[in-house]
């Protein structure tokens, strides 16, 4: 980039800043306004307050929804990391039929969520599975599997094949090679994938609405609240979800940057 003449560098910087502001400033509005009260449709800027957060904390429905979200998230992560890793290992070791497997895994992620959700709904009805948290977890897993799979597979492919050969060469068995060489080298990718999966599950709305029973997750709850009208604690909720998601993404990035680069920088 340094090869560019100075005026064009400044121009590029200006454009980048503008785009960033346009894209991301709406995100900050609810965060900022969550610290102020609204009366008669006007924001009272004079006195910052945490009252919206207090109201949120006292909202029993929200707390229940939060717990549901966490339970669903954790189950989804466990299921998707285990199956995503197994699929990646299987794919990596295979020679034929690879593109079909890849396609099937990515399909639910690429399809519009409403289509995935409807397909799942029809499927659950056909096999007679009651809508419940279980169906939500299954729905989320199908949706996020591609991310975990992709993350783990990329790490697997960047791993030198000779590492595995060296392990065998030094006398290790297949199990020893898996537990002591392959898995440790995948672990940070698995953690990164898990965090991304959790973030996706945390925010997932469309599929959840379609396949959930009586319980609702946080975004679904939020959706329901919005339909009844805008209330100040929605700002607080949006702000919290936003911050939490950002935190997760930062964490995920930490785990997904290759180790070598990380040590070079430190």
């Amino acid at each position: 980039m340094s090869a560019l003449p100075r005026p064009s560098t400044i121009f590029l910087a200006a454009i980048t800043t503008l785009v960033a502001v346009l894209l991301y400033s709406p995100l900050f509005v609810p965060i900022v306004s969550s610290f102020f009260t609204v009366s008669h449709g006007n924001v009272d800027w004079s006195s910052p307050t945490l009252s919206t957060y207090v109201a949120l904390a006292e909202n029993h429905d929200i707390l229940v929804a939060l717990r549901t979200t966490l339970v669903v998230g954790v189950c989804t992560v466990i299921l998707s990391v285990v199956s995503g890793t197994l699929l990646a290992l299987y794919y990596h070791g295979r020679r034929s039929g690879r593109s079909i497997l890849q396609f099937i895994i990515f399909l639910p992620f690429l399809m519009p969520p409403i289509i995935s959700g409807l397909a799942l709904l029809i499927f659950f009805r056909e096999i007679g599975l009651e809508r419940s948290l279980l169906t939500v977890v299954i729905g989320h897993t199908v949706f996020v599997l591609a991310i975990v799979y992709r993350t783990v597979l990329m790490r697997l492919q960047s791993m030198s094949r000779t590492l595995v050969e060296a392990s065998y060469d030094l006398g290790a068995t297949g199990w020893q090679t898996f537990w002591r060489i392959i898995l440790p080298n995948l672990s940070s990718a698995m953690v990164g994938g898990a965090i991304l999966a959790f973030a996706l599950s945390f925010d997932e709305t469309m599929i959840t609405i379609l396949v959930t029973g009586t319980q609702s997750t946080l975004p679904v709850r939020l959706w329901a609240m919005m339909r009844l009208g805008f209330s100040p604690d929605i700002n607080a909720l949006v702000a919290l979800i936003l911050m939490f998601t950002v935190l997760l993404c930062v964490l995920a990035a930490r785990f997904l940057i290759p180790r070598q680069m990380a040590t070079e920088r430190s």
């Binding site: 030198s160 000779t162 590492l163 050969e165 060296a166 392990s167 060469d169 030094l170 006398g171 290790a172 068995t173 020893q176 002591r180 060489i181 440790p184 080298n185 180790r259 070598q260």
Partner: peptide
């Protein structure tokens, strides 16, 4: 037999002594 690979194939998540001791610990 043991091999010295062209790209060394050292295990990146193990220390030098972990690498060297691997053949014994397995």
């Amino acid at each position: 037999f043991n091999t010295v690979f062209q790209d060394y194939a050292l295990f990146p998540h193990m220390t030098v002594s972990g690498n060297v001791g691997y053949g014994l610990s397995v």
